[in-house]
Nucleic acid binder design. Structure first.
Length: 345
DNA sequence: AAGGACATCAACCGCCTGCTC
DNA sequence: AGAGCAGGCGGTTGATGTCCT
């Protein structure tokens, strides 16, 4: 497959666009549409290659472009979508009207990426970093967690932890649905990953769970009809992928290690955690249920990697992460500290 | 005030995919 | 079926602006 030779041609201007060039391009496109980008420069009287014209138009001159700072809502949307889609800037841009992929990419690289790193998360996986500096942050978070726990009666702690386990079981079920959906999408329907439709459906699915955020125990029954029907509702203003939302029922408890983004990253990587939920679904006395008498807090067992569904593009940074599928998504601060778990159980 | 360091972002580069012939 | 082309995408670069010493 040959590459477009337009940019290799000599004598064409490169570099910043002048106001005169912008004017010519805008006037031509407004009058004739862009048509063939390759032919456009000549027709518009521009000494540029078609590719340069297309970029200038799509990234800067297009009338529907929203300029200015990103709002907190847009920022959150980008974070959520990135945790789910990885560096699919064009896919992310389709969910942010008026923003270009280039703009979002720049914003990510200059702001959000640094923000995540500062918070101790790996910006590619949205999971806690494992280097010494992030471990320090985790230790600090653990200290906060213990302080919070010390102030709570043990019954409340148990109920809260059970509730979180139940919420995660629900998320596992969503992940199962995602995998099912992914398996039904023909490979040819999308060049890189899932079709945009499936992306959106999956995103909606995940976000629908944020409806549990106002419930102090995150729903009190197994995955019933109402829970199921809530899957697929519209995106809410605060996504489930927002750790602050997920932990909103425990106002003093900060998400210790990227609880939710961690989970979502796993989902994006196609890890299968449905086994634990199936157990819950089949047994009313399952420890996964909030009303169960004792909270064993055992993480679901990851399945062999051969069963993992390729939800994300194999070439994506997300899917090539060193955190590969099969790693339990439970927050390390809770689960890596067994004595702490025994203490509160 | 000067200049070095850092941040931002428009633009470029090279690769990939889908379409057409 | 395969070659060529057009358009799109993600990564990177470099010019410019801002901050800091």
């Amino acid at each position: 497959m040959g590459r477009s030779p337009c940019c290799d041609e000599n004598g064409l201007k490169k570099g910043p666009w002048t106001p005169e060039e912008d004017q010519k391009l805008v006037q031509y496109i407004q009058k004739h549409g862009h048509g063939s980008w390759r032919a456009l420069p000549k027709l518009a009287g521009l000494n540029r290659c078609g590719k340069s014209c297309r970029l200038r138009w799509t990234n800067y001159l297009r009338p529907d472009i929203k300029r200015g700072k990103f709002s907190p809502e847009e920022e959150q949307t980008i974070l959520n979508l990135h945790s789910f889609l990885g560096n699919k800037w064009s896919a992310i841009a389709t969910h942010l009207p008026g923003r270009t992929d280039n703009e979002i990419k720049n914003f990510w690289n200059t702001h959000l990426k640094k923000k995540l790193i500062q918070m101790g998360f790996d910006p590619m996986t949205h999971r806690p970093r494992t280097d010494i500096f992030s471990n320090l942050q985790q230790l600090l978070a653990l200290a906060n967690l213990r302080e919070f726990m010390d102030q709570q009666p043990w019954e409340e702690q148990a109920v809260r932890l059970q509730a979180e386990a139940f919420q995660m079981a629900k998320l596992q079920y969503c992940q199962h649905l995602l995998q099912t959906a992914a398996a039904t999408v023909p490979a040819s329907s999308s060049s890189n990953s899932l079709s945009s439709m499936t992306d959106m459906e999956s995103f909606n699915l995940l976000n629908s769970i944020s409806s549990f955020k106002d419930n102090p125990v995150l729903g009190s029954s197994p995955l019933d009809n109402s829970t199921l029907s809530s899957l697929g509702t519209a995106i809410t203003s605060q996504s489930v992928l927002d750790p602050q939302v997920h932990f909103s029922h425990s106002p003093n408890l900060k998400p210790p290690c990227g609880f939710q983004t961690h989970l979502t990253s796993e989902i994006a990587q196609g890890s299968d955690y449905t086994a634990g939920f199936s157990q819950a679904e089949s047994s009313p006395q399952s420890p996964w249920f909030p009303h169960s008498p004792s909270p064993p807090l055992l993480p679901p067992q990851p399945v062999p990697s051969t069963t993992q569904t390729a939800i994300s593009n194999p070439g994506d940074a997300c899917s090539t992460s060193s955190y590969g599928g099969g790693t339990p998504f439970w927050p390390e601060l809770l689960l890596d500290d067994e004595s702490f778990i025994q203490e509160i159980a």
